[in-house]
Computed example of a mutant assay.
Amino acid sequence: MIAPDLRSGVERLGDMIAGASVIVPFTGAGISTESGIPDFRSPGGLWTRNRPIPFEEFVARQDARDEAWRRRFAMDDTFAAAQPGRGHRALAALYKAGKVPAIITQNIDNLHQASGFAAGDVVELHGNTTYARCIGCGKRHELDWVRQWFRRAGHAPHCTACDEPVKTATISFGQAMPVDEMRYASQLAQNCDLFLVIGSSLVVWPAAGIPMLAKESGAKLVIINNEPTEQDEIADLVIRHDIGETLGPFVGN
């Protein structure tokens, strides 16, 4: 059902939240635009300005690794200034109230943790851009270390433990999805009675299959997104309005 207006959508959502025992949110880039982080696909989004660098290209070419890190450093001020928006805070309120056991996110910005979620309860399907990992041994490297290396050497770093390339701890196109996170996300989807999709276009697979799994497992499905998605027709409620305005009434409740 597509809500005819914001007010009726919020009222219906409130009833569904009140009646649910276990709620699992699934968030995409749209929830963070209020925090000043641009999304990927819309006009002016990150991918309209820069072609994504596939994982295979990152591994094979030093210039690709250098460009990937230049792009990340160019976003330093944006990520540093970002604070949780109304959507993040509303979900954190439901988490603190015991309604939400964990949150599934396609985002890499760490804003759910900043809003009050314990790190272990944020299932990051596409990783996290606030630190780096070696693609060989998996050793964690902090961004300050990467910046110092880049400034000193003039190129992207390699791991001090195994000499393999170091990249942000995010999942690039062509890179394998994290097995443990995908398994946990699937378990959450199969064991909730309300699944909230917030700010995701639901076009990136296999992550986009998780809301369908929740619906098939008996959960009510709500989609909150400015634009239509391919899964609107199976949703119990679709709200096509601003996420901050939609979830704002639930902040602190």
Rank of each mutant, 00 (worst) to 15 (best):
K96A: 15
V59F: 06
R71F: 08
G120K: 06
R152K: 14
I37T: 08
L125Q: 03
A119T: 09
L46Y: 13
T27L: 13
G244Q: 06
Q83K: 15
A219M: 07
L46M: 14
I37R: 00
L221P: 08
A90V: 02
E230P: 03
L125M: 10
A132K: 02
G218I: 13
A3Q: 02
R51H: 11
W145R: 12
G116A: 05
G19Q: 03
E245N: 11
T160K: 11
L194K: 07
L196H: 00
L143K: 06
E227D: 15
A81L: 07
A18P: 00
Q113W: 02
F195E: 04
I243P: 00
A82V: 12
P157R: 05
T168Q: 11
R140G: 11
S8H: 12
A97R: 14
E164H: 13
V146F: 13
E11V: 15
T229S: 02
P25F: 02
W47Y: 15
F79C: 04
L247V: 02
G252A: 07
L194A: 05
D193P: 07
I23H: 06
T48Y: 09
R72I: 10
P25H: 05
G248S: 08
A214F: 00
W149I: 01
A189P: 01
G36F: 03
S172A: 14
K220C: 00
F195I: 06
A132E: 02
A132R: 01
T246A: 10
E227V: 11
G120L: 05
D144R: 12
V179N: 11
R183G: 01
F26P: 01
L221I: 13
V179F: 13
W145N: 07
P165V: 08
N107A: 09
A156C: 12
A161I: 07
A64W: 03
R89L: 15
D39W: 05
P101A: 08
F117N: 00
I135S: 05
I198V: 14
G248D: 04
I31F: 12
F26K: 03
I103D: 00
S200W: 01
L237V: 01
L6G: 12
A207S: 13
M75Q: 09
K220L: 09
A208S: 14
P84M: 05
I234N: 00
K215N: 09
D5L: 06
S172C: 05
L213V: 07
A208T: 06
R183K: 15
G138V: 09
F26H: 03
Y184M: 12
D236V: 03
R41F: 10
Y95R: 09
C137R: 03
V166K: 03
N226R: 13
A74Y: 02
I37A: 10
M1W: 09
R89N: 14
I17W: 08
L6Q: 12
F195R: 01
D76P: 01
A81K: 12
L221N: 09
S21V: 15
V146P: 14
L13P: 05
